[in-house]
Design a protein around this nucleic acid. Structure first.
Length: 342
DNA sequence: CCGTCCCCAGCGATTACTTCA
DNA sequence: GGTGAAGTAATCGCTGGGGAC
Protein backbone atom coordinates (compact mmCIF):
# COMPACT_ATOMS: atom_id res chain seq x y z
CA UNK A 1 0.00 0.00 0.00
CA UNK A 2 1.31 3.41 -0.88
CA UNK A 3 0.36 6.74 0.49
CA UNK A 4 0.72 9.38 -2.10
CA UNK A 5 -0.12 12.91 -2.78
CA UNK A 6 0.08 14.38 -6.21
CA UNK A 7 0.78 18.02 -6.62
CA UNK A 8 2.95 18.28 -9.60
CA UNK A 9 0.43 18.20 -12.34
CA UNK A 10 -2.91 19.70 -11.70
CA UNK A 11 -3.67 20.29 -15.28
CA UNK A 12 -5.39 17.02 -15.88
CA UNK A 13 -9.08 17.12 -16.37
CA UNK A 14 -11.15 16.05 -13.47
CA UNK A 15 -11.38 12.45 -14.46
CA UNK A 16 -11.81 11.05 -11.09
CA UNK A 17 -15.52 11.21 -10.91
CA UNK A 18 -16.02 10.20 -14.49
CA UNK A 19 -14.81 6.70 -14.32
CA UNK A 20 -15.43 3.74 -12.23
CA UNK A 21 -12.41 2.74 -10.21
CA UNK A 22 -11.31 -0.75 -11.02
CA UNK A 23 -8.78 -1.80 -8.54
CA UNK A 24 -8.53 -4.45 -5.99
CA UNK A 25 -8.38 -3.35 -2.44
CA UNK A 26 -4.77 -4.31 -2.11
CA UNK A 27 -3.89 -1.76 -4.76
CA UNK A 28 -5.34 0.97 -2.67
CA UNK A 29 -2.86 3.77 -2.49
CA UNK A 30 -1.84 7.28 -3.02
CA UNK A 31 1.15 8.93 -4.50
CA UNK A 32 2.84 12.13 -3.50
CA UNK A 33 4.56 14.28 -6.07
CA UNK A 34 5.50 17.67 -4.84
CA UNK A 35 6.26 20.56 -7.10
CA UNK A 36 8.60 23.09 -5.71
CA UNK A 37 6.00 25.60 -4.86
CA UNK A 38 2.87 27.28 -5.93
CA UNK A 39 2.87 30.60 -7.59
CA UNK A 40 1.70 33.36 -5.36
CA UNK A 41 -1.73 33.46 -6.83
CA UNK A 42 -4.15 30.68 -7.28
CA UNK A 43 -6.99 32.92 -8.04
CA UNK A 44 -8.68 33.52 -11.32
CA UNK A 45 -10.72 30.42 -11.22
CA UNK A 46 -13.64 28.62 -9.83
CA UNK A 47 -15.99 31.48 -10.07
CA UNK A 48 -19.39 30.69 -11.29
CA UNK A 49 -19.53 31.31 -14.96
CA UNK A 50 -15.84 30.86 -15.50
CA UNK A 51 -15.45 27.21 -14.73
CA UNK A 52 -14.61 26.28 -18.24
CA UNK A 53 -11.32 28.06 -17.96
CA UNK A 54 -10.25 26.30 -14.84
CA UNK A 55 -8.05 23.78 -16.50
CA UNK A 56 -6.13 26.40 -18.36
CA UNK A 57 -5.69 28.22 -15.11
CA UNK A 58 -4.42 25.08 -13.58
CA UNK A 59 -1.73 24.99 -16.20
CA UNK A 60 -0.48 28.33 -15.01
CA UNK A 61 -0.47 27.21 -11.47
CA UNK A 62 1.99 24.47 -12.06
CA UNK A 63 5.49 25.40 -11.18
CA UNK A 64 8.09 25.06 -13.87
CA UNK A 65 10.34 23.30 -11.45
CA UNK A 66 10.62 19.58 -11.71
CA UNK A 67 8.46 17.94 -9.14
CA UNK A 68 9.91 16.10 -6.26
CA UNK A 69 8.33 12.78 -5.75
CA UNK A 70 7.92 11.27 -2.37
CA UNK A 71 6.87 7.71 -2.15
CA UNK A 72 5.99 7.29 1.39
CA UNK A 73 5.04 3.70 1.63
CA UNK A 74 5.91 0.48 -0.11
CA UNK A 75 3.47 -0.41 -2.78
CA UNK A 76 2.93 -2.55 -5.75
CA UNK A 77 5.23 -0.75 -8.14
CA UNK A 78 3.75 1.75 -10.52
CA UNK A 79 5.75 2.28 -13.68
CA UNK A 80 7.00 5.77 -14.10
CA UNK A 81 5.00 7.83 -16.48
CA UNK A 82 1.89 5.88 -15.79
CA UNK A 83 -1.05 7.53 -14.29
CA UNK A 84 -0.08 6.24 -11.10
CA UNK A 85 -1.60 5.23 -8.67
CA UNK A 86 -4.56 3.56 -8.63
CA UNK A 87 -8.11 4.25 -8.47
CA UNK A 88 -9.67 3.17 -5.32
CA UNK A 89 -12.50 0.81 -5.73
CA UNK A 90 -15.37 1.80 -3.60
CA UNK A 91 -17.75 -1.08 -3.65
CA UNK A 92 -20.69 0.99 -2.65
CA UNK A 93 -20.37 3.20 -5.69
CA UNK A 94 -22.09 2.49 -8.92
CA UNK A 95 -20.67 3.06 -12.37
CA UNK A 96 -22.34 6.36 -12.68
CA UNK A 97 -20.44 8.23 -10.06
CA UNK A 98 -21.73 11.64 -10.85
CA UNK A 99 -25.32 12.41 -10.73
CA UNK A 100 -26.55 15.82 -11.55
CA UNK A 101 -27.56 18.02 -8.70
CA UNK A 102 -31.19 17.63 -8.19
CA UNK A 103 -31.24 14.16 -9.57
CA UNK A 104 -33.28 11.80 -7.53
CA UNK A 105 -30.77 9.08 -8.17
CA UNK A 106 -27.79 9.41 -5.92
CA UNK A 107 -25.27 6.72 -6.68
CA UNK A 108 -22.76 5.95 -4.05
CA UNK A 109 -24.88 7.23 -1.32
CA UNK A 110 -23.58 4.72 1.08
CA UNK A 111 -22.43 6.41 4.17
CA UNK A 112 -23.39 9.43 5.99
CA UNK A 113 -20.75 10.34 8.47
CA UNK A 114 -20.99 13.92 9.54
CA UNK A 115 -23.93 14.45 7.33
CA UNK A 116 -26.06 17.20 8.64
CA UNK A 117 -29.57 16.48 7.89
CA UNK A 118 -31.43 19.02 5.84
CA UNK A 119 -29.55 22.18 6.34
CA UNK A 120 -27.75 22.29 3.04
CA UNK A 121 -30.53 21.91 0.58
CA UNK A 122 -29.69 25.37 -0.62
CA UNK A 123 -26.30 24.10 -1.65
CA UNK A 124 -27.78 21.47 -3.82
CA UNK A 125 -26.21 18.56 -2.03
CA UNK A 126 -27.57 15.13 -1.87
CA UNK A 127 -29.78 14.43 1.00
CA UNK A 128 -30.18 11.14 2.68
CA UNK A 129 -31.23 9.88 5.97
CA UNK A 130 -28.53 10.40 8.53
CA UNK A 131 -29.39 7.14 10.12
CA UNK A 132 -29.29 5.03 7.04
CA UNK A 133 -25.58 4.98 6.72
CA UNK A 134 -24.16 2.87 9.45
CA UNK A 135 -25.40 -0.39 8.10
CA UNK A 136 -24.08 0.34 4.63
CA UNK A 137 -20.75 1.31 5.98
CA UNK A 138 -19.26 -2.12 5.71
CA UNK A 139 -16.18 -1.79 3.57
CA UNK A 140 -14.10 -4.55 2.22
CA UNK A 141 -10.60 -3.25 1.85
CA UNK A 142 -9.10 -6.68 1.92
CA UNK A 143 -6.63 -6.99 4.71
CA UNK A 144 -7.88 -5.13 7.67
CA UNK A 145 -6.15 -4.85 10.90
CA UNK A 146 -7.88 -4.92 14.18
CA UNK A 147 -7.25 -1.25 14.38
CA UNK A 148 -8.98 -0.77 11.05
CA UNK A 149 -11.99 -2.62 12.25
CA UNK A 150 -11.90 -0.54 15.35
CA UNK A 151 -11.80 2.56 13.22
CA UNK A 152 -14.78 1.41 11.24
CA UNK A 153 -16.68 0.98 14.42
CA UNK A 154 -15.51 4.37 15.47
CA UNK A 155 -16.65 5.75 12.16
CA UNK A 156 -20.06 4.43 12.85
CA UNK A 157 -19.90 5.98 16.26
CA UNK A 158 -18.85 9.18 14.59
CA UNK A 159 -21.80 8.95 12.33
CA UNK A 160 -24.08 8.56 15.26
CA UNK A 161 -22.32 11.42 16.93
CA UNK A 162 -22.90 13.33 13.76
CA UNK A 163 -26.56 12.78 14.02
CA UNK A 164 -26.42 13.99 17.54
CA UNK A 165 -24.36 16.95 16.51
CA UNK A 166 -26.79 17.62 13.76
CA UNK A 167 -29.52 17.69 16.30
CA UNK A 168 -27.42 19.94 18.44
CA UNK A 169 -26.89 22.33 15.59
CA UNK A 170 -30.52 22.37 14.82
CA UNK A 171 -31.09 23.19 18.43
CA UNK A 172 -28.70 26.08 18.10
CA UNK A 173 -25.81 24.49 19.97
CA UNK A 174 -22.30 24.46 18.67
CA UNK A 175 -21.52 21.50 16.47
CA UNK A 176 -18.70 19.23 17.52
CA UNK A 177 -15.83 18.62 15.23
CA UNK A 178 -16.32 15.30 13.55
CA UNK A 179 -13.83 13.07 11.90
CA UNK A 180 -14.25 12.02 8.32
CA UNK A 181 -14.19 8.33 7.79
CA UNK A 182 -11.18 6.64 6.33
CA UNK A 183 -13.07 5.99 3.13
CA UNK A 184 -14.24 9.53 2.79
CA UNK A 185 -10.72 10.77 3.29
CA UNK A 186 -9.44 8.31 0.71
CA UNK A 187 -12.00 9.46 -1.79
CA UNK A 188 -11.21 13.09 -1.17
CA UNK A 189 -7.53 12.33 -1.44
CA UNK A 190 -8.08 10.70 -4.78
CA UNK A 191 -10.00 13.73 -5.93
CA UNK A 192 -7.26 15.99 -4.72
CA UNK A 193 -4.84 14.11 -6.90
CA UNK A 194 -6.92 15.07 -9.87
CA UNK A 195 -7.39 18.69 -8.89
CA UNK A 196 -6.23 20.47 -5.82
CA UNK A 197 -8.96 23.02 -6.20
CA UNK A 198 -12.61 22.47 -6.89
CA UNK A 199 -15.12 24.40 -8.83
CA UNK A 200 -18.63 24.51 -7.39
CA UNK A 201 -19.85 21.72 -9.61
CA UNK A 202 -17.07 19.41 -8.57
CA UNK A 203 -17.60 20.36 -4.98
CA UNK A 204 -21.25 19.51 -5.17
CA UNK A 205 -20.56 16.24 -6.92
CA UNK A 206 -18.04 15.21 -4.31
CA UNK A 207 -20.29 16.26 -1.49
CA UNK A 208 -23.09 14.27 -2.97
CA UNK A 209 -20.84 11.31 -3.50
CA UNK A 210 -19.58 11.30 0.04
CA UNK A 211 -22.71 12.46 1.73
CA UNK A 212 -20.94 15.45 3.11
CA UNK A 213 -21.92 19.04 3.04
CA UNK A 214 -20.26 21.01 0.24
CA UNK A 215 -18.78 23.20 2.92
CA UNK A 216 -17.06 20.18 4.42
CA UNK A 217 -15.58 19.26 1.07
CA UNK A 218 -14.44 22.82 0.60
CA UNK A 219 -12.83 22.95 4.01
CA UNK A 220 -11.17 19.61 3.46
CA UNK A 221 -9.57 20.88 0.26
CA UNK A 222 -8.46 24.06 1.92
CA UNK A 223 -6.84 22.20 4.75
CA UNK A 224 -5.36 19.73 2.34
CA UNK A 225 -3.76 22.52 0.35
CA UNK A 226 -2.43 24.00 3.54
CA UNK A 227 -0.92 20.67 4.56
CA UNK A 228 0.58 20.28 1.14
CA UNK A 229 2.12 23.68 1.29
CA UNK A 230 3.54 22.99 4.69
CA UNK A 231 5.01 19.76 3.46
CA UNK A 232 6.43 21.52 0.45
CA UNK A 233 8.01 24.10 2.69
CA UNK A 234 9.66 21.36 4.69
CA UNK A 235 10.95 19.72 1.53
CA UNK A 236 12.26 23.03 0.21
CA UNK A 237 13.87 23.76 3.51
CA UNK A 238 15.62 20.44 3.51
CA UNK A 239 16.78 21.00 -0.05
CA UNK A 240 18.18 24.42 0.76
CA UNK A 241 19.91 22.98 3.75
CA UNK A 242 21.62 20.42 1.57
CA UNK A 243 22.55 23.12 -0.91
CA UNK A 244 24.05 25.16 1.86
CA UNK A 245 26.10 22.23 3.06
CA UNK A 246 27.32 21.55 -0.45
CA UNK A 247 28.30 25.14 -0.98
CA UNK A 248 30.06 25.31 2.34
CA UNK A 249 32.05 22.29 1.40
CA UNK A 250 32.84 23.76 -2.01
CA UNK A 251 33.90 27.00 -0.43
CA UNK A 252 36.19 25.15 1.92
CA UNK A 253 37.74 23.31 -1.00
CA UNK A 254 38.28 26.49 -3.00
CA UNK A 255 39.82 28.28 -0.06
CA UNK A 256 42.24 25.47 0.31
CA UNK A 257 43.03 25.60 -3.39
CA UNK A 258 43.59 29.33 -3.17
CA UNK A 259 46.02 28.90 -0.32
CA UNK A 260 47.94 26.38 -2.34
CA UNK A 261 48.07 28.71 -5.32
CA UNK A 262 49.31 31.53 -3.16
CA UNK A 263 51.99 29.33 -1.74
CA UNK A 264 53.00 28.43 -5.26
CA UNK A 265 53.01 32.09 -6.22
CA UNK A 266 55.44 33.04 -3.46
CA UNK A 267 57.73 30.23 -4.38
CA UNK A 268 57.67 31.20 -8.08
CA UNK A 269 57.89 35.04 -8.20
CA UNK A 270 57.51 35.35 -12.00
CA UNK A 271 53.79 34.89 -11.51
CA UNK A 272 53.82 38.40 -10.10
CA UNK A 273 53.98 39.75 -13.61
CA UNK A 274 50.63 38.25 -14.53
CA UNK A 275 47.49 40.33 -14.02
CA UNK A 276 45.21 39.49 -11.14
CA UNK A 277 42.44 37.11 -12.06
CA UNK A 278 39.11 36.61 -10.37
CA UNK A 279 36.85 33.67 -10.97
CA UNK A 280 33.17 34.35 -10.60
CA UNK A 281 30.00 32.62 -11.64
CA UNK A 282 26.99 34.11 -13.34
CA UNK A 283 23.98 33.59 -11.04
CA UNK A 284 21.71 32.85 -13.95
CA UNK A 285 23.54 30.68 -16.43
CA UNK A 286 26.20 29.39 -14.04
CA UNK A 287 28.95 30.19 -16.48
CA UNK A 288 32.33 30.80 -14.99
CA UNK A 289 33.58 34.30 -15.61
CA UNK A 290 37.29 35.05 -15.49
CA UNK A 291 37.87 38.69 -14.70
CA UNK A 292 41.38 39.96 -15.37
CA UNK A 293 42.27 43.32 -13.94
CA UNK A 294 45.16 45.29 -15.34
CA UNK A 295 46.20 48.90 -15.57
CA UNK A 296 44.35 49.33 -18.85
CA UNK A 297 40.98 48.15 -17.62
CA UNK A 298 39.01 44.96 -17.01
CA UNK A 299 38.47 42.06 -19.34
CA UNK A 300 35.73 39.56 -18.56
CA UNK A 301 35.63 36.18 -20.21
CA UNK A 302 32.69 33.86 -19.68
CA UNK A 303 32.91 30.24 -20.56
CA UNK A 304 30.60 27.32 -20.74
CA UNK A 305 31.10 23.99 -22.46
CA UNK A 306 29.92 25.28 -25.82
CA UNK A 307 30.80 28.93 -26.09
CA UNK A 308 33.27 31.47 -24.92
CA UNK A 309 32.55 35.18 -25.04
CA UNK A 310 34.73 38.09 -24.16
CA UNK A 311 33.68 41.60 -23.23
CA UNK A 312 35.79 44.49 -22.14
CA UNK A 313 35.04 47.45 -19.95
CA UNK A 314 37.24 50.15 -18.65
CA UNK A 315 37.85 50.26 -14.92
CA UNK A 316 34.53 48.63 -14.09
CA UNK A 317 34.29 46.63 -10.92
CA UNK A 318 34.62 42.89 -11.25
CA UNK A 319 31.75 40.82 -9.95
CA UNK A 320 32.89 40.10 -6.47
CA UNK A 321 29.91 38.55 -4.73
CA UNK A 322 29.70 34.82 -4.78
CA UNK A 323 27.07 33.43 -7.05
CA UNK A 324 23.91 32.54 -5.23
CA UNK A 325 22.52 29.24 -6.35
CA UNK A 326 19.24 29.76 -8.13
CA UNK A 327 16.85 27.05 -7.13
CA UNK A 328 13.74 28.55 -8.59
CA UNK A 329 12.89 30.46 -11.72
CA UNK A 330 14.05 34.03 -11.39
CA UNK A 331 11.26 36.48 -10.91
CA UNK A 332 11.12 40.10 -11.91
CA UNK A 333 13.22 42.37 -9.83
CA UNK A 334 15.90 39.84 -9.11
CA UNK A 335 19.49 40.12 -10.20
CA UNK A 336 19.87 39.94 -13.93
CA UNK A 337 22.63 37.94 -15.49
CA UNK A 338 25.58 39.95 -16.70
CA UNK A 339 25.05 38.64 -20.22
CA UNK A 340 21.32 39.31 -20.28
CA UNK A 341 21.56 40.90 -23.69
CA UNK A 342 23.09 37.85 -25.31
C1' DC B 1 -12.14 54.58 -19.28
C1' DC B 2 -11.99 54.94 -14.36
C1' DG B 3 -13.47 54.49 -9.59
C1' DT B 4 -16.41 52.25 -6.26
C1' DC B 5 -19.03 48.67 -4.34
C1' DC B 6 -20.14 44.00 -3.70
C1' DC B 7 -19.56 39.06 -4.06
C1' DC B 8 -16.85 35.21 -3.79
C1' DA B 9 -12.99 31.98 -3.33
C1' DG B 10 -8.66 31.15 -1.33
C1' DC B 11 -5.34 31.69 2.24
C1' DG B 12 -3.02 32.06 6.86
C1' DA B 13 -3.69 31.78 11.52
C1' DT B 14 -6.04 29.86 14.98
C1' DT B 15 -9.22 27.03 17.65
C1' DA B 16 -11.35 22.83 19.05
C1' DC B 17 -11.50 18.28 19.04
C1' DT B 18 -9.70 13.37 18.24
C1' DT B 19 -6.30 9.91 18.20
C1' DC B 20 -2.30 7.77 19.66
C1' DA B 21 1.88 6.68 22.15
C1' DG C 1 -6.73 6.15 33.29
C1' DG C 2 -4.14 10.54 32.61
C1' DT C 3 -1.35 13.28 29.68
C1' DG C 4 1.03 15.55 26.00
C1' DA C 5 1.94 15.60 21.08
C1' DA C 6 0.33 15.25 16.62
C1' DG C 7 -3.24 15.37 13.32
C1' DT C 8 -7.15 17.52 11.42
C1' DA C 9 -11.99 19.52 10.91
C1' DA C 10 -13.75 23.88 11.37
C1' DT C 11 -13.75 29.00 12.03
C1' DC C 12 -12.33 33.75 11.45
C1' DG C 13 -10.54 37.62 9.21
C1' DC C 14 -8.18 39.32 5.39
C1' DT C 15 -7.06 39.77 0.48
C1' DG C 16 -7.55 40.08 -4.35
C1' DG C 17 -10.05 39.16 -8.72
C1' DG C 18 -13.99 40.11 -11.27
C1' DG C 19 -18.54 41.81 -12.42
C1' DA C 20 -22.08 45.49 -12.05
C1' DC C 21 -22.95 50.18 -11.91
Amino acid sequence: MELALSLGDTSKPFKFLDKNPKLSSKDLGFCMALGSGFPATTRSQDKLGSHESNYQDDERRVSSDPPLQLDLLPFSPVPRGHQAPSRIHFPWLTDNLVSEPGSTDAPGRGFDVNRLSMDDADEGAAISSPNSAASSFQMDFGIRSGRDRKRDLEAIDAERASSRASDDEENGLTRKKLRLSKEQSAFLEESFKEHNTLNPKQKLALAKQLNLRPRQVEVWFQNRRARTKLKQTEVDCEYLKRCCETLTEENRRLQKELQELRALKTSQPFYMQLPATTLTMCPSCERVATTTTSSSGTTTTTTNPSTTTTTSTTNSKPLSLPAKPRLFPMSHGQVQPHHAAS
